[in-house]
Design a protein around this nucleic acid. Structure first.
Lengths: 235, 235
DNA sequence: CGAACCTTTGATAGACCTCAAAGGTGGTGG
DNA sequence: CCACCACCTTTGAGGTCTATCAAAGGTTCG
């Protein structure tokens, strides 16, 4: 579903990369050419293997970015939040290397590849910001590779909970994770199985670190979770 | 050990990013300010946690880039070859997030951070090339994360051999891997132990895929190795 | 209210790591 | 040139961790 366009300078999204475009005529062109599209929960925004046509920026909502592995097993690579770029991975390859699916209802800002290419070719400040974004993702990804190679499943799940909180935060009053993910999805982030997630979440509850209320997970001790991960880092 | 400077346009390294600097005065400044330093085998070029001072480009030789994990266990993130940037990961963080060590004698081109910052601020074409490099590394890293989460150790080791060949190639006559890595180092790339590497290399030899002559590994069937990895991708 | 889906829990099998010991290899100094 | 030392590789045994399978109990939504 297409939503009416908003000009970038009226967009509430302070962290959006497009804020760093200085050239006025490019800015106008962007406002004309971009499309804002609405997605319900659990809809695919981008599909692995498809030709690359638009760069997408998540305007509002929550999106999981993942790849398919063995037995069509899924590995979630990133949890995207408002302002995050999600189509950039395919930019230099012309083929989308990932699938992106909404976790909840979301609106996405689509920018045609041709226009994005023009932005890259003209706006030095913008390119620098974008590169910084890539560098940050590279750093995160390399840390993740390290963790997957060395952590136990328990540590990985604790680490995953922390990552989810870092991405989407907590509900203010209840202290519950601000996103509903199934055990399966948590497993797909941690790189393990839904059964292990179930077992260790229960163990975390026994240890007083979290409280499980159905699909809701309430955080009791962030320090406790971090301790599980940090013990790994020092041992 | 410092080597005499060579101007970029006389450098044999065709794949070096610095080739893409268009501005003549910047190019001159670069030729004046850069230092070329020689390292013996097994010397550290960059150390994790140290302040970030120079961007390094490998002019000649072979370098492994790694991070420390559990029990000071090492995870090799990348095998760098001539023309590869190796200091860029710390650029936006001011702290080096990785260690880089020579596998064999190498020469490295060091560019002061201040000058590199100037390049980024002035040369649009250069920044675009650099971003493409980051994007490529991000793609590689995410594939690696996927593999580590889903592949068996046998598949990981086969995949690692292919990666080593892609990075450094084969000796023309013997068809041997063009680099000498210990079992331990291969394990640090694959994310497993030296014993498993030893066992599976033997198994690969039994299957006629490779030939082990001490530390030398001679490739017999690249297709065979790829088949082990591809079976994983389709199953 | 029923169907589909998700979660929990236990049992089992297999993969992988660790440990240990023996055999090789390469480099250094006498 | 040889002997020695340090380091690397190979091989096997044992134990732990993790994935898989299965079944029962919950939850959600039409």
């Amino acid at each position: 579903m297409k939503l009416p366009n908003i000009n970038c300078d009226q967009c509430k999204n302070a962290s959006c990369l497009l804020r760093h475009i200085s050239n006025a005529s490019l800015c106008q062109e962007l406002n004309n050419e971009k499309r804002i599209i609405f997605f319900n929960a659990n809809q695919k925004i981008l599909v692995e293997g498809m030709p690359f046509e638009d760069v997408s920026i998540l305007q509002n909502g929550k999106v999981k970015v993942y790849k398919y592995g063995l037995n069509k097993k899924v590995q979630i690579i990133r949890l995207s939040k408002s302002g995050d770029l999600i189509g950039h991975r395919g930019f230099y390859r012309n083929k989308m290397p990932i699938t992106a699916k909404t976790i909840e209802a979301s609106s996405v800002c689509m920018i045609p590849k041709t226009l994005f290419t023009k932005l890259l070719a003209c706006d030095l400040k913008f390119v620098n910001k974008l590169m910084q974004f890539y560098a940050e993702e590279l750093y995160d990804s390399e840390v993740l590779t390290l963790n997957h190679a060395h952590m136990t499943v328990k540590e990985l799940i604790a680490d995953t909970l922390i990552r989810i909180i870092e991405a989407y935060g907590l509900e203010k009053k209840s202290n519950a994770l601000n996103v509903k993910l199934s055990r399966q999805e948590i497993a797909e982030i941690a790189g393990t199985t839904k059964e292990q997630v179930s077992k260790y979440l229960y163990e975390f509850q026994e240890e007083g670190l979290i409280l499980i209320k159905g699909k809701q997970i309430i955080l009791c001790s962030l320090e406790g979770l971090k301790k599980i991960v940090i013990e790994y880092q020092n041992s």
